[in-house]
Write a protein that binds this DNA or RNA. Structure first.
Length: 859
RNA sequence: GCCGAAGUGGCGGAAUUGGUAGACGCGCUGGAUUCAAAAUCCAGUUCCUUCUGGGAGUGCGGGUUCGAUUCCCGCCUUCGGUACCA
């Protein structure tokens, strides 16, 4: 044996570990469980660059560390394999996306294997595998067969709703729904099956609706709100249009409150929780009904400031508001129609870039102010959004800047209702003031005035307290090929779920991946894509939309627990043992997408009694991005991609792992640094030299370790344990370096010290530690070794070099026994020659002594 | 605009509970070894300075404290989220 030959060492152990199946984990164990999960990747054609494995390395270190500490650690990996790029490629080349996906996965696997991860690959999942998406479809059907009971704040089986309908109709039921009609139990019993199914669809947790969606013509599909950034598609940056389309949606809005409250008990970063809170967007206010003058209509508005109602001088409704036509007077008809036409023509982007441009039109109608009786004009303006609240607001120009801008532009009155407001300059949105010009609210503080007004509104029956959420239901249809088929067929225009025994509905073959000529999604190209339920000779059309990318990733963590189960999505035993994820690692960019849907599905499955927890991941760590050396994003386009395979070829996987960790804190963004890699590589060579003589022969000693050697070791045990516990893997690397430097200085290659050190380092650098471990004659793999116990007696010192400060500035050190009392310390320090120099003969004003820490002298 | 996170040497970063600022590594400088190089080793490396010493210093300005990178107030910059949410 000679120099540190990482290539052959790593190849040897890669093979050996695979043969020994050292990373295989059982569902039955006496040990406590621990679940460490990485966000699984989409296998793109470009392969991995050095930024991708950062989080995987960190989670691998943590998994190995936990395993060494006696846990049964579930640490799996798989692929989020459905997605747009494979399909775009298929459209261009005609290759089946399954084929390119397969190839990309093989490439990913090769790269991941080189790095030496401890994944239990027997548990791999792929969302595009029919054996997997069978259960995605099955969960979809469970969601379809559920409704949300607002009284219990839980999803329940649709059967309980049906029996309520049979007995008492829908007037009393408190459900999340889209039904704007009432019926009695008798009515229900008299309805046709079709009508009943249509009604149920308004209550189901997944439902079909004709709703305004974000249509992306370039991608040929609709997109969810979280897939749009700055008014264009996140993928590709294409323009978005608002369109009414028939879509499947999921009623995530029913879970707004629980998704919000659930954040409290999660150990996620504050910034990530804040992003989710903002996205959910809870606001507490009041719904107020304004009687439209000379009309039967009552205009319902939402406001968070009911106290400012006396400052309302006009109403504004969205261009899409349902009353637009009814409220438009004859002489305003032309103007209104022109305005609405213009508003419709604007894309999302135009509207956003047009914020400063104030537009609007008067309808010709008025409402009556419920307290003053004054007539207030109703305007239409696109600064009011149809999708939020009721799509109508009472405009209080002195209290809301947007209303102020609008009033200022159209010359409408701006009366102040808060003391001290300067309405000539702008609105006063401060909630700390006192009410004026407001009848019975005069002199009250805003908070009290809101309470009083709510009471008045409710007693006059013209309004009530209301809570609104910004988060909308999630569109669940994609007009694409490469996704899970929706397991629904249509009979008489009504959707029915496919029977469980007929799942999965497999993706049919098509001859082209584009929409059909009559505008159907790509699945419309399939021949005979129909379904015949048992006992029915007819065949019915199957839903042609596929599921969105987030479907498979919303529950994958459960499948890893029991990946081969063909009878259940996961067995009760497995999910009871493994529970939810203890540590989840991934990027913060999934804050409003994956991480919300992931929580949502978990809550639904929990409500339905299918899993015993209602949050998927207790702790979440967001790893930062590695930028290219030039500070830019690492991308093929800029030609600055660093491939981990190349680094491994030149320095080995241990060096790559160590270097990625040494770059800085895991959650921080940081540029790749090629120079620094030689430093960690040198360190590994130094470790190697510690155990090899000048001729390259392996050498070590069986002698007992002395005090200094044990001190160096136990200092490292303590520090590395602490650091690993708090995911500070960069500082554990520097601790290894310090330990090896000290042992090199001490010329210590004693087994008693080296073996525990190897175990400490093993999570970071599995290959070299396993090699040395086996050279030391160990038969068991280091992968299975126990974490060394820390013994603080090795660190106990009898004296300490006290830093002595004058006015907080460290001047010199003085070695004193640690058992010395405060007074003696003070006396000894003040009597020292060193101190005399700084005291210059004067007595100190004050002396602070913190035993074992510091001495500070004030002069 | 609003919300969140962060600003420390030439560079990546460390300082975990208010207690020696700059650990560890890179880079750089000088030296040893070598015919030479690679590799390795040793010493130095925050800045200023009148250099056996002194002064300044953790984005900027204040404050609390014997003592502040750490706590408080006000600003600046960078990054991330969000974008008329009533």
């Amino acid at each position: 044996m000679n120099a540190y030959d990482f290539s052959s060492i790593e190849a040897k152990w890669r093979k050996q570990w695979r043969e020994d199946q050292v990373y295989r984990i059982e569902n039955n164990s006496e040990k406590p469980k621990f679940y460490v999960l990485d966000m699984f990747p989409y296998p793109s054609g470009a392969g991995l660059h050095v930024g991708h494995p950062l989080g995987y390395i960190a989670s691998d270190i943590y998994s190995r560390y936990k395993r060494a500490n006696g846990y049964n650690v579930l640490h799996p990996m798989g692929y989020d394999a459905f997605g747009l790029p494979a399909e775009q490629y298929a459209i261009q080349t005609g290759q089946h996306p399954a084929k390119t996906t397969e190839e990309n996965i093989a490439r990913y696997r090769e790269q991941l294997d080189l790095i030496g991860f401890s994944y239990d690959w027997s548990r791999e999942v792929r969302t595009s595998d029919p054996k997997y998406y069978k259960w995605t479809q099955w969960i979809f059907i469970q969601v379809f067969n559920s409704w949300f009971n607002k009284a219990t704040q839980k999803a329940e089986s649709i059967d309980t709703l049906i029996s309520i309908f049979e007995n008492e109709g829908n007037t009393e039921v408190n459900a999340a729904n889209d039904a704007d009609y009432n019926f009695s139990g008798g009515d229900w019993m008299g309805y046709s099956e079709k009508r009943q199914q249509e009604i149920l669809l308004d209550y189901r947790l997944t439902y079909i609706s004709n709703s305004l969606v974000n249509w992306c013509p370039a991608l040929g599909t609709v997109l969810a709100n979280d897939e749009i950034k700055n008014g264009v598609s996140e993928r590709g940056g294409h323009p978005i249009e608002q369109q009414k389309m028939r879509q499947w949606s999921m009623r995530i809005s029913a879970y707004s409150e629980r998704l919000l409250q659930g954040l409290e008990k999660l150990d996620w970063t504050d910034s990530l929780k804040e992003i989710q809170r903002n996205w959910i967007g809870k606001s507490i206010g009041a719904a107020v009904h304004f009687q439209v003058a000379d009309s039967d209509h009552r205009l319902e508005i939402f406001t968070t400031r009911p106290d400012t109602i006396f400052g309302a001088t006009f109403m504004v409704i969205a261009p899409e508001h349902e009353f637009v036509e009814d409220l438009t007077s004859n002489d305003q008809k032309e103007a209104v129609e022109g305005y609405i036409l213009k508003a419709k023509a604007k894309t999302e982007r135009d509207r956003m870039s047009d914020v400063k441009n104030i537009t609007g039109v008067f309808t010709g109608s008025y409402v009556e102010h419920p307290f003053s009786g004054e007539k207030l004009p109703i305007w239409i303006a696109d600064y009011v959004l149809a999708g939020y609240g009721t799509g109508a607001v009472m405009a209080v120009p002195s209290g809301d800047q947007r209303d102020w801008d609008f009033a200022n532009h159209f010359d409408l009155p701006i009366p102040a209702v808060i003391e001290g407001s300067d309405v000539s300059e702008g609105a006063n949105e401060d909630k700390g003031g006192v009410l004026i010009n407001s009848d019975f609210l005069n002199g009250m503080k805003v908070k009290d005035a809101i309470k009083k007004m709510l009471f008045e509104l409710e007693s006059k029956e013209i309004g009530e307290k209301q809570i609104n959420y910004r988060m909308r239901d999630a569109v669940f249809s994609r007009q694409r090929y490469w996704g899970e088929p929706v397991p629904m067929y249509f009979k008489d225009g009504v959707p029915y779920p496919v029977a469980e025994k007929d799942l999965p509905i497999e993706l049919p073959e098509v001859d082209k991946y584009l929409p059909t000529e009559d505008g159907q999604p790509p699945l419309g190209n399939a021949k005979d894509f129909t379904y015949s339920p048992e006992g029915d000779n007819n065949s019915y059309p199957i839903e042609l939309n596929t599921m969105p990318g987030w479907a498979g990733s919303s529950w994958y963590f459960m499948r890893y627990m029991d990946p081969q189960n063909s009878d259940e999505f996961v067995s009760k035993d497995a999910v009871d043992y493994w529970q939810n994820v203890d540590v989840y690692l991934g990027g913060a960019e999934h804050a409003t997408g994956h991480l919300l849907y992931f929580r949502f599905w978990t809550k639904v499955l929990n409500d339905l009694g299918l899993v015993p927890f209602d949050e998927p991941a207790k702790k979440l760590i967001n790893q930062g991005m590695i930028q290219a050396e030039d500070g830019q994003k690492m991308s093929k386009r800029y030609g600055n991609v660093v491939n981990p395979d190349d680094i491994i070829g030149e320095f080995g996987a241990d060096t790559l792992r160590l270097h990625e960790m040494f770059l800085g804190p895991i959650e921080q963004h940081k540029p790749w640094n090629t120079k620094g890699i030689e430093g960690v590589h040198r360190f590994l060579k130094k470790l190697w030299r510690l155990l090899h003589d000048n001729d390259g022969n392996f050498t070590f000693s069986e002698e007992k370790a002395n005090k200094d050697e044990l001190k160096a070791l136990h200092k490292a045990i303590k520090k590395v344990s602490d650091d690993n516990e708090r995911f500070s893997f960069n500082t554990s690397v520097s601790t290894f370096m310090i330990a090896v430097n000290e042992l090199s200085d001490l010329k210590c290659n004693k087994r008693e010290v080296i073996e525990p050190l190897l175990v400490l380092m093993h999570p970071h650098t599995p290959y070299i530690t396993e090699e040395v471990w086996s050279l030391l004659g160990n038969k068991e793999r280091i992968v299975l070794a126990e974490w060394p116990a820390f013994d603080k007696s090795h660190l106990v010192e009898s004296s300490y070099a006290y830093p002595v400060s004058f006015n907080g500035k460290m001047r010199f050190k003085i070695e004193l026994p640690l058992d010395l009392g405060k007074e003696e310390i003070e006396k000894t320090v003040l009597a020292s020659d060193e101190a005399a120099k700084y005291l210059e003969g004067t007595a100190p004003k004050k002396v602070i002594v913190v035993p074992g820490k510091i001495v500070n002298i004030v002069v």
